[in-house]
Design a protein around this nucleic acid. Structure first.
Lengths: 190, 190
DNA sequence: AATTGACTAAAAAACTAAATTAGTCAAAAC
DNA sequence: GTTTTGACTAATTTAGTTTTTTAGTCAATT
């Protein structure tokens, strides 16, 4: 059984990015961790950034799977939006690689990392947008601008889950659901 | 008429902070611009940061005046929320000092500047919260958590006014009002 | 009593030498 | 013939040092 070198490289890089971040991970280190010569990495990936891209791409797929897993077709659309977004942000705060990348962006401002996190955000918005369009087609939602609305919904959840924590006690999933209910269901005025 | 040295110092510092930012403004420069000896600055302000604090404090007062000016007591509360928040973010994107400070935070991450911008944000939230409590007392709003709701409303406007611009064409005041109407008035589901 | 600017200690910038690193490629291994 | 390799290089980053700048002070001046 010939070892799958490509897979070993991706696994080694994922481990190292999670542990030390993107910048602090050297290609020599990845090669050693993967038990391959450094040159081998470059037969599969054009450069360090492409290797990173492949890993982030898997991460996004993993996140979509996580979101899909909490959806329940019989629940109202807004309830499923809450379940999916809360799960995605929970994932972001639990997944080793995501934690490290968010930290690296905040502390060092590594450009490649910022771009990659922006990409993840865009993918989540696109996913949400697609779900929203299906719901509109089914008549479960009014015909709103799905791109802006998806964008805004994600920003609201980031505000309630991440930003709020910077100066206050974290909000529970139920508390967030309660706040969002005011906006999504009833509207603000009495 | 003896020149009002205190006022000259504050004006010189405001001008220099607006033009060069907080970090790049030296106390020697402020003294020269204000036509006073450097020591004079320290008879009015304990240090550079306290001088900055006084200027930011005026800025916040100026912003509140701007917000008050667009309120119309006969309009519904949500309409006034939109008017006030849009005006405040418009102010932020037009006022020289604010533009420079936001830029300095993004590009250099000056700690004192971050703290000061956070303070401005907290003041806006407190202002909004107070308005909201009055509205609840009058029965114009349901009894919601005013701190979280104010926080979230501001974050929504920042998302629509500032964050959206990073990757898209800016949204007009009317477009933003239209989006917010979905959330504030009708709620999302059909 | 108020103002000043030369002065100082501390911080930041500029500079340099040394070390590290992404990516290459001729040779080795299959 | 194809894949794998690690010594090699040019470019970047880091670490250490010197120089410059700056916030804040205070004795002299107004």
């Amino acid at each position: 059984m010939a070892p799958d070198r490509r897979k070993m490289i991706v696994e080694a890089a994922t481990k190292s990015f999670s542990l030390f971040g993107y910048k602090a991970t050297t290609m020599d280190q990845v090669a050693k961790l993967a038990n391959v010569g450094k040159g081998t990495i470059y037969t599969f990936f054009k450069n360090k950034e492409e290797l990173f891209e492949e890993i982030i791409s898997s991460l996004v797929k993993e996140m979509i799977v996580e979101a899909e897993a909490v959806l329940q077709p019989d629940l109202p659309f807004t309830e499923n939006v809450h379940r999916a977004l809360y799960r995605l942000l929970e994932f972001r705060s639990q997944h080793h690689l995501m934690i490290k990348l968010v930290q690296e962006e905040a502390e060092m401002g590594t450009l490649t990392v910022s771009e990659m996190l922006q990409h993840v955000e865009n993918e989540i918005i696109a996913y949400l947008q697609q779900k929203m369009e299906t719901a509109i087609a089914k008549g479960a939602l009014p015909a709103i601008n799905t791109e802006i609305t998806s964008f805004l919904l994600l920003k609201m959840y980031i505000a309630l889950v991440s930003d709020w924590e910077r100066n206050h006690e974290p909000l529970s999933s139920d508390q967030i659901a309660e706040i969002m209910k005011v906006f999504l269901l009833k509207g603000l005025p009495r």
